[in-house]
Amino acid sequence: MALLRRLTDQTGLTVLLAEQNVRSAMSVADRGVVLSVGHVVADDDARRINADDDLRHAYLGF
């Protein structure tokens, strides 16, 4: 994850990351999309998703 963050910061590279480890993925994400049973339940800035306690507990498990 540190390498991804460094590459995106230094080069402006865009990365689409599909990851089950939500905490790890959100640590490098600028934006997050949360799916539940194939439906988008959140599509927002990663900081806003991380700050939404109800969303995190219901869908992200932390």
Score class of each variant (00 low, 15 high):
residue 3 L to M: 14
residue 34 V to S: 13
residue 8 T to E: 00
residue 48 R to H: 11
residue 52 D to C: 09
residue 42 A to I: 11
residue 41 V to Y: 09
residue 35 L to W: 14
residue 44 D to I: 00
residue 40 V to A: 11
residue 51 A to Y: 02
residue 22 V to C: 07
residue 58 A to T: 15
residue 37 V to N: 13
residue 54 D to W: 14
residue 60 L to D: 14
residue 19 E to G: 07
residue 1 M to L: 10
residue 6 R to Q: 13
residue 23 R to M: 10
residue 14 T to R: 03
residue 18 A to D: 08
residue 52 D to Q: 06
residue 45 D to W: 11
residue 28 V to S: 05
residue 11 T to F: 11
residue 32 G to D: 00
residue 42 A to L: 14
residue 49 I to F: 05
residue 31 R to L: 01
residue 5 R to S: 07
residue 62 F to C: 13
residue 14 T to V: 04
residue 45 D to A: 12
residue 15 V to M: 08
residue 59 Y to I: 08
residue 11 T to Y: 10
residue 49 I to A: 08
residue 9 D to I: 02
residue 37 V to H: 11
residue 4 L to G: 04
residue 54 D to L: 14
residue 46 A to L: 00
residue 33 V to H: 06
residue 47 R to N: 09
residue 39 H to A: 04
residue 5 R to P: 01
residue 18 A to L: 13
residue 18 A to F: 10
residue 47 R to K: 12
residue 38 G to D: 05
residue 2 A to K: 11
residue 34 V to Q: 11
residue 15 V to K: 00
residue 39 H to L: 02
residue 3 L to N: 04
residue 47 R to Y: 00
residue 16 L to N: 07
residue 10 Q to N: 09
residue 19 E to S: 09
residue 12 G to N: 03
residue 2 A to L: 11
residue 61 G to I: 12
residue 41 V to S: 06
residue 50 N to Q: 15
residue 49 I to K: 05
residue 58 A to N: 15
residue 43 D to C: 11
residue 49 I to M: 05
residue 36 S to I: 03
residue 27 S to K: 05
residue 42 A to M: 12
residue 9 D to L: 04
residue 47 R to L: 08
residue 45 D to H: 13
residue 52 D to A: 08
residue 5 R to G: 04
residue 37 V to F: 11
residue 42 A to C: 10
residue 5 R to I: 04
residue 26 M to F: 05
residue 48 R to V: 01
residue 24 S to A: 13
residue 34 V to W: 12
residue 8 T to G: 02
residue 55 L to I: 04
residue 30 D to M: 00
residue 57 H to K: 15
residue 46 A to W: 03
residue 2 A to I: 09
residue 11 T to N: 07
residue 60 L to E: 12
residue 29 A to P: 09
residue 30 D to Y: 03
residue 13 L to K: 07
residue 57 H to N: 13
residue 16 L to D: 03
residue 42 A to H: 13
residue 26 M to I: 05
residue 14 T to L: 02
